[in-house]
Design a protein around this nucleic acid. Structure first.
Length: 287
DNA sequence: CGCATATCCTGACTGC
DNA sequence: TGCAGTCAGGATATGC
């Protein structure tokens, strides 16, 4: 029947949804207190140092690079950087709301309430970093251009995917955040289906026309997913800042649909492993 | 150097 | 119904 595991992890559209929610309420709010109870969530720097760096600061604009959230502090050269990884959530609460299990960091925002970081698998993380002249955190310089950045033209995508690669699969290249930032397992599968390209095709056999197609379909899909506030399955691994699920899962063409007919040709959708990831594809449509 | 693999972790699911 | 075992996955470290 359908593949066993169906979970939507936060990728670009989900992180962008969180960013937009935060951008409506966070700017201008001052952090009166920070409590880090989960040591693993703050691991790039000392917990006490982290609390010192954030306490008393006022949040400015909220931006995103790939799957990283960047919350500027005091409009200065520093920012709070957040990555949700597998199961992280940034939630907005009244201070009196019950504290959910796996809440690892709590930011008190004066009379406004709290911003809380909840993360069962503890893969997610937060850290304070300095920003360069372009507003890029210093520890994120290795990231490729954001998947929705206009500067990621077909020519640039083609060059970055094929550069130096021999046998690596196309999907693995798209998942490499150094190539482009923001694409994860779900949207890689959806974009490659729409572009009619096999995930296992060697990246070296990725033509300029292929790059144009992938770029177009990826942008279309990511934008539609953002409009639907992201993808969630029954397990609600992804929810927004108020705990609400996203609506894009009903539009998935192949992801989580193994054993069901391809929406384009009716062939049974397969689930295989590519780049050590559960991968969904139509063996007829995708070459 | 390119690429594969192990690692971190919890909860959902499988099978008895 | 309960419980032990398996599996999922983003980024990174390590090994070939």
């Amino acid at each position: 029947m359908t593949s066993r595991a169906r979970r939507a992890l936060p990728e670009l559209p989900e992180v962008e949804t969180v960013r937009r929610d935060l951008a409506e309420v966070i700017p201008g709010r001052t952090v009166t207190k920070v409590t880090v109870s989960g040591a693993r969530s703050v691991r790039r720097q000392d917990r006490v140092e982290f609390e010192r760096l954030v306490t008393g600061r006022r949040f400015g604009q909220v931006s995103r690079h790939g799957k990283f959230l960047v919350l500027s502090l005091d409009d200065g050269p520093e920012a709070l950087v957040v990555h949700l990884r597998m199961s992280g959530q940034v939630r907005l609460h009244r201070s009196s709301d019950e504290v959910a299990k796996h809440t690892h960091v709590v930011f008190d925002l004066g009379g406004f309430g709290q911003m809380r970081f909840v993360d069962p698998r503890t893969f997610g993380e937060l850290f304070v970093d300095t920003l360069d002249d372009d507003g890029r955190p210093s520890q994120l310089v290795h990231l490729g251009p954001d998947a929705l950045d206009d500067r990621l033209t077909a020519a640039v995508l083609h060059r970055r995917v094929t550069a130096g690669r021999r046998s690596l699969g196309l999907k693995a290249a798209l998942l490499d955040q150094r190539v482009l930032a923001g694409v994860g397992n779900l949207y890689a599968d959806e974009a490659l289906f729409a572009a009619r390209l096999r995930p296992s095709r060697p990246a070296a056999a990725f033509s300029r026309d292929d790059a144009g197609l992938v770029r177009r379909e990826l942008r279309r899909i990511l934008r539609a997913a953002i409009a639907a506030r992201g993808s969630s399955f029954a397990d609600a691994a992804y929810v927004d800042t108020r705990g609400v699920t996203g609506g894009y899962a009903t539009r998935h063409q192949v992801y989580g649909r193994a054993g069901q007919p391809c929406p384009a040709c009716g062939t049974t959708i397969l689930r295989i492993v590519v780049a050590a990831r559960g991968t969904h594809l139509c063996p007829s449509c995708q070459t």
